[in-house]
Simulated assay, not measured.
Amino acid sequence: MASLNEQLATLIENYTACDVSDALLKLQKVPAGSAPRAGYLADLLPFSPIAGRNDTAQKIAAPATTFKFLNKADTPSTIAVENPEKHGFPPGKHWVDYAGDFQNEDPAKAGSIIVIEQPDEQYCAVTGGIMATRMKYLGIKAAVVGGRVRDLRELQGTELPIWARATSTVGTGAEAKAGVRNVPISIGGVTVSPGDIIFCDPMEGVVSIPRELLGDVLETMPKLIAMDDQAKEAVAQGMSVTDAFQKFR
Rank of each mutant, 00 (worst) to 15 (best):
A35M: 08
G179Q: 05
V144A: 00
K232Y: 09
A174I: 13
T133M: 12
L138T: 12
R165D: 10
R153A: 14
A23T: 15
Q7F: 00
D55I: 10
K86A: 10
G129V: 13
A2V: 04
S168D: 11
A73T: 15
R148C: 12
A108E: 07
T65V: 00
P222E: 05
F102I: 08
F199W: 09
E105G: 13
V217P: 07
E204M: 14
G195D: 02
E85T: 13
L160Q: 10
P49F: 06
P119F: 06
C200S: 03
C200V: 02
K93C: 13
S168N: 07
V96S: 05
Q103C: 04
L8T: 07
S21W: 05
I185L: 11
K141W: 09
K223V: 09
V206K: 00
P107T: 04
R211D: 12
P210F: 11
A51F: 12
V96E: 04
K141E: 10
G111Y: 00
P202T: 09
E159W: 10
V144R: 02
G238I: 04
Q28G: 03
Q58Y: 14
H94I: 14
A38L: 06
C124F: 14
V183S: 00
P107F: 08
V149A: 00
A176P: 06
G188M: 05
V190I: 13
Q230C: 07
V241S: 08
G173H: 11
S193K: 11
A57L: 02
K29C: 09
G205T: 06
I185Q: 03
I187Y: 07
F245P: 05
P161Y: 03
A38N: 07
T172C: 08
Q103R: 01
L24Y: 01
L11A: 10
T191S: 06
G146V: 01
I209G: 03
G188L: 08
C18L: 13
E204P: 01
V149D: 01
E212M: 10
N104G: 14
D243G: 01
G52D: 10
D229L: 13
I12V: 02
P91D: 15
G215W: 11
L214A: 08
D74R: 01
P49Y: 14
P210D: 11
Q230N: 13
L41F: 04
I130P: 09
S193M: 05
V149C: 09
K72F: 12
F69A: 06
K72Q: 11
Y98L: 08
D196T: 08
